[in-house]
């Protein structure tokens, strides 16, 4: 079974870390990742740019609304994610609009630029359920 692990934390606390603290945390996280990678159990890993860089596309029927900031509603749940390559935010919004059109009813798409990305290609030796 493949699992996605989504990481949540206090962004303002994390961004108040000193460089040394940041390096220490990253070092410990890398050790966890290395262990998984050696066992062929690690897929793509990404760290996102802070939520201040986030944009949200909200769809309500045929209406689409672009909002600055991260997804803030609590009535909808995270159902999946895409990783796409785009020239800029406008390109990413176009893709989100296509996805929104393909889906019926309401929905929200939070668009977050990716800061660090390790594809770990071929690293994953398990197939999705």
């Amino acid at each position: 079974m493949l699992y996605a692990i989504l990481c949540y934390n206090h962004e303002d606390v994390v961004s108040a870390w000193s460089q040394e603290e940041e390096d220490r945390v990253m070092g410990r996280l890398m050790r966890v990742q290395d262990g998984l990678a050696q066992q062929g159990r690690l897929g793509p890993v990404a760290r996102l740019v802070p939520t201040t860089a986030a944009t949200t596309l909200r769809k309500n029927g045929d209406q689409m609304l672009v909002l600055d900031g991260p997804f803030a509603e609590t009535k909808e749940q995270l159902l999946g994610f895409y990783l796409i390559d785009c020239e800029n935010l406008e390109g990413a919004l176009d893709v989100a609009r296509d996805l929104a059109k393909a889906n019926p009813g309401t929905g929200s798409y939070e668009i977050r630029p990716v800061l660090l990305f390790h594809p770990n290609e071929g690293g994953l030796k398990v197939e999705a359920a």
Binding site: V49, P50, T52, A53, D68, N88, L89, E90, P113, L115
Partner: peptide, 9 residues
Amino acid sequence: AEGLALIDK
């Protein structure tokens, strides 16, 4: 990366 993303917005 963060700066460019903010300009885009």
